[in-house]
Nucleic acid binder design. Structure first.
Lengths: 151, 151
DNA sequence: TTCATATTGACAACATGCTGTCATTCTATA
DNA sequence: TATAGAATGACAGCATGTTGTCAATATGAA
C-alpha cells in the first residue's frame, strides 16, 4: 500500500502545511503563557481584546475572530462571571446585548498586552521585520487562495 | 487604558502570528474535509499516518506528533474499536504495545492520502514551489527561535 | 542485585473549539 | 402592513487537545 505520488509543488505545499500547523500550536501555547499570569488564556484574551476594540454583541465578535458564535458566548459568559466584562443594552437590538469591558477587564487586558509587547518586540527583533512582513504577505495570499477554493 | 507601544518589528511579529494561527485553522479544517469521506478526521489521520510510517507505542506517536500521550491514546483506542489499528506485543516492552495498522486501516489511510495528494498538488501549483519553499524555511527558523526561547 | 527514577497506559477532569436545535427578535420584501 | 427569512442567544452534545494522578513496568546507578 504505497503513498500516492505528489508533484514537487504538492510536496512543497504539504511540508508548508505541516510547519504552519506546528508553528501555530507553539504560538498559541506562547499566548497562553502570556495570558496565564493574569489568570487568563489565549481564547479569553482574544475576546477581551475584541470587546476592548469596540463594544459589540457576541455574534459579532465571533465573526471578527472567525469563530463559531457559541464558543465565544461560552467564554464571554465566563468572563462576565469573573467580572471582566458586562452586557450592556444595545439600542440597535433588544436581544443582542453589547459586550463591554469592566475596569477590571481593562486592567487584565492591559497587563496581558504589556507582556505581549515585550515578547513580540524581542522575537520581532530576532527574526527581523523584512522576513516577517514578506512571509505575512505570502501567508495572507495562501489564506485567500484557500478560502476561494472552498467557495 | 492605552495599548502598550510595540516596536515596528514587534508589530510585524504580532501580525505574522495572527496570520499563522488563522491559516493553521483553515488548513486543519481542510484536512478534516479530506479525511471526512473516509469517516475520519485530521487527528485520526495523523495517528494512522504515524503508525503506518513505523509501528510504535502510543507514547512514541505522541512525541513524534508533538502531542500529549493521553490524547493520542484516546484516539488510538477509538481507531482500535473501529478496526483500523490493533495493538501488537512489543518485544522491547511488556506494557507499551505497538500500534499497527490493520488492512482496513491501510485502505482508509490510502484513500485519505489519495485525496490529499490531489488537493496539495492543486494548491501547490497555484501558489508556486518557490514561495512555499522559502516560506517554509522561514517558518522553520521562527519555530526554532520560539522553542529556543522557551528553554 | 537493589532501589530510586523514568516511562507507560488507564482514568478523570477541564478548556476550547465545533455542530445542531429551539424560541425570540430583527429585517426586508411583497 | 404582513410575513417569511435571517440573526441571536440559550442549551445540549461531541471532538480534540490539555493537565493531574495512579499503578505497573523498565532502566540505570550505586
Amino acid at each position: 500500500m504505497k503513498k500516492p505520488d505528489r508533484t514537487a509543488a504538492g510536496d512543497a505545499f504539504a511540508l508548508f502545511s505541516i510547519s504552519v500547523i506546528r508553528l501555530a500550536s507553539h504560538l498559541t501555547t506562547a499566548g497562553d503563557a502570556l495570558a496565564k499570569p493574569a489568570g487568563q488564556s489565549s481564547a479569553r484574551w482574544q475576546v477581551l481584546a475584541a470587546a476592548s476594540h469596540a463594544s459589540m454583541p457576541v455574534a459579532e465578535i465571533g465573526r471578527v475572530l472567525g469563530l463559531a458564535r457559541q464558543g465565544v458566548q461560552r467564554i464571554a459568559d465566563v468572563l462576565e462571571t469573573e467580572g471582566l466584562v458586562r452586557y450592556e443594552d444595545n439600542p440597535a437590538h433588544q436581544r443582542a446585548k453589547l459586550l463591554v469591558l469592566t475596569d477590571k477587564g481593562q486592567a487584565v487586558l492591559h497587563d496581558i498586552q504589556t507582556r505581549q509587547a515585550a515578547w513580540a518586540d524581542a522575537l520581532g527583533a530576532e527574526i527581523g521585520s523584512d522576513d516577517l512582513t514578506t512571509t505575512t504577505m505570502i501567508l495572507t495570499r495562501i489564506l485567500d487562495d484557500l478560502v476561494k477554493k472552498n467557495r
